[in-house]
């Protein structure tokens, strides 16, 4: 069964910017897919379709057999989306409340919520941060808490938007270790332009100008124009 199936997806923002021009993407269950591409190639817009925040204007998005156009909130339980900027994702006064926000919305009991929060903070290595305020955290800590807020919901598909952007090499290694421990039973979709992440993923697709233009086997291919059919200006 496919975890993610995107067919001929188009999206145009209200201000007229065309972000997606016919994206096709298929991700099998348990697969790790890396979407690589320059800034403004439509990666973030595509990811926002995966949990139903944006609805397809043309084309089709089917997640775990659920059509994004027909669902009503179920996708958000199945797909956990980690945003690029942790300041957008952390909006509660304390770390505990932020990590608990998702589980509470899933209507889990209080004991289960606490267990989930504890587990999620443990996974990102920030046990004991429960009562800290987000504005007292460093950027790397915020980034890891943002990941914890999604892990606490225990989604089947995890989506990371530029997870290693502006991380220092130590925290980046931390993230890559975390990625390894997340296990094989979860489908993961990552976007970015960090070539190091390629080796942790099963497949890497190159995205450009609102389309996925092909699969990439090794990092040199990114710069080969004949392979990608586009040239760097």
């Amino acid at each position: 069964m496919l975890a993610v199936e995107v067919r001929n997806l188009h999206y145009r923002y209200p201000d007229g910017t065309i972000a997606l021009r016919g994206v096709d993407l298929r991700v099998k269950k348990g697969e790790r897919v890396y979407l690589i591409g320059p800034n403004g190639s439509g990666k973030s817009t595509l990811l926002l379709h995966l949990n139903g925040i944006l609805k397809p204007q043309r084309g089709k998005v089917v997640i775990l057999g659920i059509d994004a156009n027909e669902e009503n909130g179920e996708l958000k339980k199945k797909v956990g989306l980690v945003f690029q900027n942790p300041d957008d994702q952390l909006f509660m006064p304390t770390v505990f409340e932020d990590v608990a926000f998702g589980p509470v919305n899933l209507k889990l009991g209080e004991a289960e919520v606490k267990k989930r929060v504890k587990m999620a903070l443990e996974m990102v290595g920030l046990t004991g941060f429960e009562n800290r305020s987000p504005h007292h955290l460093s950027y790397g800590e915020k980034k890891r808490i943002a990941i914890a807020t999604v892990l606490a919901m225990d989604p089947e598909i995890l989506v990371f938007d530029e997870p290693t952007l502006s991380l220092d090499p130590w925290i980046k290694r931390n993230f890559m270790e975390l990625l390894k421990t997340l296990g094989r039973n979860r489908t993961i979709v990552i976007s970015g332009h960090d070539l190091d992440l390629m080796k942790l993923c099963d497949r890497t697709y190159l995205m450009r100008d609102g389309r996925i233009i092909g699969e990439i086997k090794n990092r040199r291919e990114i710069f080969q124009d004949s392979k990608t059919g586009a040239s760097r200006r």
Binding site: K76, Q89, G102, V104, N105, L106, T149
Partner: peptide, 15 residues
């Protein structure tokens, strides 16, 4: 968008 991604449906629940 981040709130909706985590299941926010207009009703705020807090512990």
């Amino acid at each position: 968008a981040a709130m909706r991604s985590r299941g926010y449906d207009g009703e705020i629940k807090l512990i």
